[in-house]
């Protein structure tokens, strides 16, 4: 898979939402390899990923990102009314990459026979798998995954572990925010902790 080396960083980033400080003076640099972001509920993991993706405005500080990124949040982020295949084909074509990898990616995630059903008719786990198939279909250098193991069965959890390992091997920068799956911390993954909106030593 062709990938573009990417990195992203936040410098003294503060995010305020509804008058609440969600992130406070966070500085973080992300390079190739796996970074595991851990923290309790409400610590600011999702906001940190969204800040890196440019989805929330910074009240202070700055964000830098090079290369294309793939962000998969708590929800599958697929458009209702379209099939899984149409959603993934749209993303690939929008990036200007061939969409011929979409069928294989959906099949690899066990969705070959459901690829042409509207996504709102799929189960939560199937929608999550369709969303994660974007990891294989889009060759982005930076991948941000927010609680990606939610809704997955054991086979899909294994599949995701393999996909993350392969992405690392391809030199992609992968950030996973999760409070489970401690096996991700092995094999030299970088660990980052967050609590009450500030980075901590995990």
């Amino acid at each position: 898979m062709r990938t573009v080396e990417a990195c992203a960083s936040l410098h003294d980033a503060t995010v305020v939402i509804d008058d609440r400080v969600i992130l406070r003076d966070v500085s973080l640099e992300i390079g190739p390899g796996l970074t595991v972001l851990r923290g309790p509920n409400g610590a600011g993991k999702t906001t940190l990923l969204r800040a890196l993706a440019g989805l929330v405005p910074l009240a202070r500080g700055r964000r830098q990102a090079t290369g294309e990124l793939l962000y998969i949040g708590h929800r599958p982020m697929l458009l209702h009314g379209l099939t899984a295949r149409e959603n993934l084909t749209f993303f690939a074509r929008f990036r200007g990459t061939p969409a011929d990898g979409v069928a294989g990616a959906l099949a690899a995630w066990g969705l070959a026979d459901r690829a042409d059903r509207s996504v709102e008719t799929l189960s939560a786990g199937e929608r999550r798998r369709a969303s994660l198939a974007r990891l294989d279909a889009e060759a982005t250098g930076l991948v941000l995954l927010d609680e990606p193991f939610a809704d997955l069965d054991d086979a899909a959890v294994s599949r995701l572990g393999e996909a993350i390992a392969r992405a690392r091997g391809d030199g992609r920068a992968v950030i996973v925010a999760t409070h489970a799956r401690h096996e991700l911390d092995q094999d030299g993954a970088r660990r980052v902790g967050i609590a009450a909106g500030a980075l901590t030593t995990p």
Binding site: Y71, G73, P76, M77, L78, L79, F94, R95, R127
Partner: peptide, 21 residues
């Protein structure tokens, strides 16, 4: 509303050129 149903809008916005398109 359809874009907000499953946060599909976020997926479009983070694409390169997504906000403009």
């Amino acid at each position: 509303d359809r874009e907000l149903d499953d946060d599909a809008l976020d997926a479009l916005v983070v694409l390169p050129g997504g906000r403009d398109a």
